[in-house]
Design a protein around this nucleic acid. Sequence first.
DNA 1: TATATTGTTACACC
DNA 2: TGGTGTAACAATAT
Length: 273
Amino acid sequence: MPELPEVETIKRQLNQNIRGKKIKKVEVRLPKIINCPASVFEKNIAGKSIKSIERKAKLLLINFSGNYTLVIHLKLTGQLILTSKTAEPNKYTHVIFYLDSQKIFFNDLRQFGYIKLVKTDEVDNLIFKEKIGPEPLEKDFTLKTFKNLLKKKKKSKIKPLLMDQSFIAGIGNVYSAEILFLSGVHPERKAGSLTKEDIKKIYGNIKKVLLEAIKHKGTSVDTYLDAYGKKGKYTLKLKVYNKAGKLCVKCGTKIRVIKQGGRSAYFCPKCQK
DNA sequence: TATATTGTTACACC
DNA sequence: TGGTGTAACAATAT
């Protein structure tokens, strides 16, 4: 499941490899993935060069010459794979970008992901409309900022709150579970019940876990692959996510799973209070 | 063969 | 109004 570290990994890899290169042709195999007729899509992208690639929350932005930007969300099972000219698409390849000597596949098993063609100067507008919260790895995301945000959400349960993109950007089910485990905080605690120490720990672990995950090129619990088609190695570092019934690495208690808002929340009943 | 799973969003409820 | 719950989306594993 691509969250901030996975999207950041793809962003860095694409910047290293395709910045400045030209898109020769686009092939849209599944029209519902894009937000306009394929002819319009192709017309505005083909022949244009890639200026830069950015990340905002879990969104990947590819900026082109000619002032158009592709806004890409990978949702649950999306992939952007940079391959050779001769690589073959699979049945989940829905859009293909052709470069001079490479291809980029947009693959998505569940077809929830999207690629939107947007005028570059309208991207900020679009992101503003999505009400995306602060970027946790930015310098201005301080402990004080975090405390103040929590004050406004005293009645919310902490795990769904960390996953709320309008509260804080880029955190999903995997990393919220890991952050709370390392902080010793139970996923059902209300924001208003957290002590100063709890808040400090959660704040520190948000930065720590996300940075560590980027270092390992993300987590592959589902179909996630990086831009080179490789799995993320943070999967090996996971302590609670997807570990129901396994033994806690700290205390040996069985990891439990509960439902929160219809989603699985994994935690250690002894280490997380 | 039916069901659970999975993130996000839209929408209903209180 | 904010917090919570549910359906829908699609494909797969069980």
